[in-house]
Design a protein around this nucleic acid. Structure first.
Length: 142
RNA sequence: UGGGACAACCAGACGGCCGCGCGCCACGCAAGUGGCUCGAGGAACGUCCGGGCUCCGCAGAGCAGGGUGGUGGGUAACGCCCACUCGGGGCAACCCGCAGGACAGUGCCACAGAAAGCAGACCGCCGCCGUGACCGCGCCGUGAGGCAGGGCGCGGCGGUAAGGGUGAAACGGUGGUGUAAGAGACCACCAGCUCCCCGGGUGACCGGGGAGGCUCGGUAAACCCCACUCGGAGCAAGGCCAGACAGGGCGCGAUCGAGGGCUGCUCGCCCGAGCGCCCGGGUAGGCCGCUGGAGGGCGUCGGCAACGGCGUCCCGAGAUGGAUGGCCGUCGCUCCCGCGCCGGCAACGGCGGGGGAGAACAGAACCCGGCGUAUCGGUUGUCCCAUCCC
RNA sequence: GCCCCAGUAGCCCAAUCGGCAGAGGCAGCGGACUUAAAAUCCGCAAAGUCAGGGUUCGAGUCCCUGCUGGGGCA
């Protein structure tokens, strides 16, 4: 359901995606995504900690996330790296809600990675951390 | 019919769409594409034991240390399993037991109690002596009184352990003889110990008979003693390939030997020119080991059994951010709530059909054999007890 | 994979060689002092020792099994 070439394999790939990627949180999952080369196949990785449950439920959660990633792979066969962290609520979630959480988190991440569909401004380095908040911390006088 | 005991087995079935991993085949220069086979468990779990395998120079002796603990067998081995013995529980089927030694030694037994372990004696009981007051039915005396006697109190000496609130446990139990009072001092029965003989059993032990002294506390999951047994580390073992980097300081050393191999100590044997600490720097890849084995099914023979021999058939996982799945449909199982029909006075039972809910514990990571623990339920077999009918 | 340690009041922690079943501190409650509070002083309550089983007359302590948490090495 997810071939080996579409999986994140090394710790370096994981830490790069989690640290420099955009983040989208939902009830069941937290999704990190980063743009990669257009020619390289898209890759997915999962983080399911012991807080989710025992080995059986962790495996079930990982399989469902892989299935959802396989659906996402049809839309984007190349160009992104995604890491999905499962939250403890994912252990008791059913398949429909887990899939909708995954899909909406991925849509939100893709909106932030591709700035304007018609804008045409192609500044590189997607996923700049949002520096705008730091700007206006100075004016509050009162 | 109801209740119970034990053993073995299963862990929903079938189908559809889309997928994943190892291997094989075909095509392709290659990336890859297509097809086929196989693809989690009874506990895969916990890691409480035992082995295989690999390395440490195949590992020696003593001490220390650890483990086991009825007997016999099974096994590669075990702390596991089977059978038997003993003890305990149950009417029974059956179940439970870390089941050697307390005359090898040491320690402990709080509180209570006279006394907690080897015998002794606080109270008590009994005898004798002394003494104090009292009684005075005997004798002497006219009488006062004296003598003998009696019980009581006190003191001393001695006998005894039958009785004594206690306590988990009190120096055999019951009855009798006996005695100044008592006591296995003696007698009968019973419980228990040691020794001997006979019979059965490989053995633990069992059955029968006799003798002795008359009785000896518990605790070894307290130290300990006895018997048997144990080298260390673990697939991140171990090996190969590729790749990266940058050294410096201090200390001890080179047959006067640092440091190692053997968990600890001593001896012994061996390797031996580097080793230890600190600061700084680099790596986190691939391949082998890696799945065919104390393997499983069936049959037969030996054995009470665990198990073993032989024959025949079969191949049933090998991931590495970690495959073995996601979704749907039908049928079956369990429970609950209505409906209809039949039997019955009724409780209720049977059949048909509808709706809803549930389906556990849990995921291989070098591989096996056990143990322990978790688990919604279901199937089959054997046996025991009670009741009813023939 | 291998090994070790711990679990006692709400919290932190004592308890000799097994012996009346459990000390202390912080926090809590009540009282005193104060106009009131803080500090101080006095008093009270709060546990049955992680769970189950065993040895023993008797277990927080000894033994076995399990649970939870923490740590170390490769």
């Amino acid at each position: 359901m997810l071939p080996v070439r579409n999986r994140l394999r090394t710790g370096a790939d994981f830490s790069h995606t989690v640290r420099s990627g955009v983040r989208q949180g939902r009830r069941n999952v937290v999704l990190y995504a980063v743009l990669s080369e257009d020619a390289v196949p898209s890759r997915f990785g999962f983080i399911v900690s012991k807080a989710v449950g025992n080995a059986v439920t962790r495996n079930l959660v990982k399989r469902r996330l892989r299935e959802a990633s396989a659906e996402a792979l049809r839309d984007r066969p190349a160009g992104i790296d995604v890491v999905v962290r499962a939250l403890p609520a994912a252990a008791s979630a059913d398949w429909a809600s887990l899939r909708s959480d995954y899909a909406s988190a991925l849509r939100g991440a893709m909106r932030r990675l591709t700035p304007e569909p018609g804008g045409g401004t192609t500044h590189d380095g997607g996923a700049q951390p949002s520096g705008g908040i730091r700007e206006d911390g100075d004016g509050s006088g009162e």
